[in-house]
Simulated assay, not measured.
Amino acid sequence: MTRPESRPTLLIAHGAWHQPSSWAATCDALAELGYRTRVPALPSAGRNPAPTGSMYDDAEVIRRELSGVDGPVVVLAHSYGGIPVTEGVAGATSVSHLIYLAAYMLDAGESMYSFHGMETPSDTSGTFPLMENPREALYHDVADELADKALGQLVDQSLRSFADKVSTAAWQDISSTYVVCGDDRAVPPALQETMAARATASRTLATGHSPYLAAPHRFAALVDEIIRSAPAAR
């Protein structure tokens, strides 16, 4: 059995409109399994004033966070967080594995806009609107009290972060596992399967978009199992 002190640190990139605090329950569950976690705040998300951070700003935050970790790191990205992880982790020799959770696993030259076949707006200032029914899209299988708390913690998301194109794809050189959320109502599972084909391996969870809130201990156990059986680096 792997000793806790030899386990990699988990660096987690939260999704759009979210804050690091949304990952508290899963971080606690991972701590019970012997993992240290870091969840940096991405500057593309925030409020008062509205965020202006780009995807590249987010990627730089992830790079800086990596530089402060001793030993091996596994990077876990959720939803939008997959984009700055893909950009920011490229070339990082300390990263042993990538985990994409219902995350955008884009290739060089792609952005959130282009991946969805949408034209990039000429003006990328301002914020990208939250979906019409976030309770249903993001948290439909999360207990009411927890979902209400999560909804109250949502913030604005810069439009620019969705328009910025990936310049280099970390998953081309670092082994990866894609976790498809089979009952996701925010990122369709069929779209996730398309991105999962780019990963070294894939798994499926029968949950909605936010298993780190809906089932933190079950999700933490899956992360632990993925890390223990991670494919060798390419």
Score class of each variant (00 low, 15 high):
I226K: 06
L222P: 11
A103Y: 13
K149W: 15
I226W: 12
A214H: 04
I83S: 07
S94H: 09
A233E: 12
V74D: 01
T86K: 08
K149M: 13
A41T: 13
L106Y: 00
T9K: 04
A196Q: 01
G81V: 06
I62H: 02
M118N: 10
G117Y: 10
A170G: 05
I99V: 15
V89Q: 08
M55K: 02
M118S: 10
T93S: 14
T200F: 01
M1V: 14
G46D: 01
T127P: 03
V142Q: 02
Y139F: 15
L205A: 09
T204H: 07
L106W: 01
M118T: 06
E145Y: 02
G68N: 09
K149R: 14
R135M: 13
R234V: 13
L30S: 02
V75G: 05
P20Y: 13
M195F: 13
Y35V: 11
L138Y: 14
G208H: 04
P121N: 04
A199F: 00
S176L: 05
L101A: 11
L11P: 09
A221Q: 13
S54H: 06
I227S: 03
A50W: 06
A163S: 11
V74E: 01
S175V: 03
V95D: 03
G53K: 11
G46K: 03
T204N: 06
